[in-house]
Simulated assay, not measured.
Amino acid sequence: MLRKSSVIFMLIVVIGVLSACSSGDDNEDSTGEQAEDQTEDTEAEENTDENDASAQSEETNEDKEQDEAAEEKEPEYYISEETSSIEPIDDAEEKVVLLTIDDAPDENALEMAETLKEKDAKAIFFVNGHFIDDEEGAEKLKKIYEMGFPIGNHTNTHVVLPDVSEEEQTEEIIAVNDRVEEIIGERPAFFRAPHGMNTDHSREVVEQEGMVLMNWTYGFDYFEPYQDADKLKEALISGEAPEIGEEHSLLRSGANILMHDREWTNEALGDVIDGFREQGYEIVDPDLIETID
């Protein structure tokens, strides 16, 4: 017969083995639950990543579709070589005006772009190279472009083209196109000479660069009597500027309105847009103007 002490010892061993097995089962259950939790977390993260990627893909596709839609717009207007007015092609709306802003982007261009955006109106921003030769100016230009506004060339230093050599004229024009392309990825489609003064050579360079050359039909914000927001607003909306001898209205269908990056013009801009619309004029989208391929 086994001694009592031996029996007790064997019972202790058996109990220890059973406890170890039970503990092992618990650990296995715990490990299994943790593995399942980790799998569920991983699947959730993967689903989130897939959803984010899908959303980003949809946004990218929407942006691409919008860009393609803009590129596919058929021209509805062209710029008259003789008058710089906006002429309709076929049966396009005739009662329109074109807004243009020179000497950008100086102190007010970005705010003017925001006003135009709020009013759902478009304009061409004609830039001077000396305003975009640093990072701050380049960033302003990029923002204006990304808001949907076409960029035009207004020469590098706002020089009077007939007063400089042909070599300098070429540099004044090409330098701006190169810099604009460096910033926004495309070259300007429109050109306006400072003071509206071109030469045979500047016209040749503009043509070679594939730009539409234009001047304007009227604008008053560079005359001293109209360097006041209220007076300027009234003059632009009516087309009359009696303080400089313009007694008869210059406002008519196809008017090409000249404005500048100036404080008083910035202040008047919103009311000017409203004033044209109240008279039944649409603000023409420059993307609908025929350009040179």
Rank of each mutant, 00 (worst) to 15 (best):
R3V: 03
K4P: 00
K4E: 12
K4V: 10
V7D: 04
F9N: 08
I15W: 10
I15D: 03
G16F: 12
L18K: 05
A20D: 04
A20V: 12
S23H: 09
G24N: 12
N27F: 11
E28M: 11
T31N: 14
T31V: 10
G32P: 02
E33Q: 13
A35W: 06
E36P: 01
D37Y: 11
D37Q: 13
D37N: 12
Q38E: 12
E40G: 01
D41W: 06
D41S: 11
A44P: 02
A44K: 13
N47P: 00
N47D: 13
D49W: 04
Q56M: 12
E62S: 12
A69L: 11
E71V: 05
E72H: 08
K73E: 14
Y78V: 07
I79W: 00
S84F: 02
S85P: 04
I86F: 01
P88R: 05
D90T: 07
D91I: 00
A92N: 08
E94P: 03
K95C: 05
V97Q: 04
A104E: 03
E107Y: 07
E111T: 10
M112D: 01
L116V: 02
K117V: 01
D120F: 01
A123D: 01
I124E: 00
F126K: 04
V127Y: 03
F131Q: 12
F131K: 09
I132N: 02
D133F: 06
D133T: 11
D134Y: 09
E136S: 15
K140E: 05
K140P: 03
K140C: 05
K142D: 12
K143G: 01
Y145E: 07
F149C: 05
F149M: 08
I151D: 04
G152A: 07
T155S: 10
N156Q: 14
V159P: 02
V159Y: 03
V159I: 14
P162L: 06
S165Q: 09
E166P: 00
E167I: 03
T170H: 11
T170R: 15
E171L: 05
V176Q: 07
D178L: 03
D178M: 06
R179Q: 14
R179T: 12
V180C: 10
E181K: 15
A189G: 01
A189Y: 06
F190M: 08
F191D: 03
A193H: 02
G196R: 08
M197W: 02
N198T: 15
T199H: 10
S202V: 02
Q208V: 00
M211F: 02
V212L: 09
V212F: 05
L213F: 06
M214C: 04
N215L: 08
T217L: 06
F220S: 04
F220G: 05
Y222M: 10
Y222L: 09
P225K: 10
Y226H: 10
K231I: 01
K231Y: 04
K231G: 11
L232T: 05
L236Q: 07
G239H: 03
E247V: 05
E247K: 12
H248L: 09
L250R: 14
L250W: 04
R252A: 15
A255C: 10
I257P: 01
I257A: 04
L258Y: 00
H260C: 07
D261A: 07
R262T: 09
E263V: 06
W264A: 08
T265S: 15
N266T: 00
L269C: 06
D274R: 03
D274L: 02
F276L: 04
Q279M: 09
Q279T: 07
P286H: 07
I289F: 01
T291R: 12
